[in-house]
């Protein structure tokens, strides 16, 4: 058993937890959190795939993919939260 396998399994576990929550919960903030967990899971399996246990080096291209993914995700999350907050506000009006 290698450490890559551990992170593959952990990444897939994150995917499973996030998918389960997305399927069973309607609360906006929780759904957004679940989507973020989903993205972390994807990043983890991607990096674990790019990791070469023989040399201990991780391929820079998947690293760049994950970095891009993190920035894209914070942008979309901010937009989603702004929408959710605006929705909450308009129900009071």
């Amino acid at each position: 058993m290698t450490s890559d396998l551990v992170y593959h399994v952990a990444g897939a576990g994150l995917l499973a937890i996030a998918l389960w929550r997305l399927a069973t919960c309607r609360d906006t903030l929780r759904r957004i959190t679940a989507l973020n967990v989903l993205a972390i899971g994807i990043a983890m399996v991607l990096l674990a795939s790019g990791h070469d246990p023989a040399t201990g080096v991780t391929n820079p291209v998947p690293q760049a993919f994950v970095l891009t993914g993190i920035v894209v995700l914070v942008a979309v999350t901010a937009a989603l939260l702004a929408l959710a907050e605006r929705l909450e506000g308009s129900s009071d009006e």
Binding site: D4, V9, A12, L15, A16, W20, A23, P60, V61
Partner: peptide, 22 residues
């Protein structure tokens, strides 16, 4: 369903090893 999907994904990802192209 989710744990099934997760298990499947873990299996596919762990069994795939990318050829060193990049």
């Amino acid at each position: 369903v989710a744990s099934g999907l997760g298990g499947g994904l873990a299996w596919v990802f762990a069994s795939a090893s990318p050829p060193a192209i990049y």
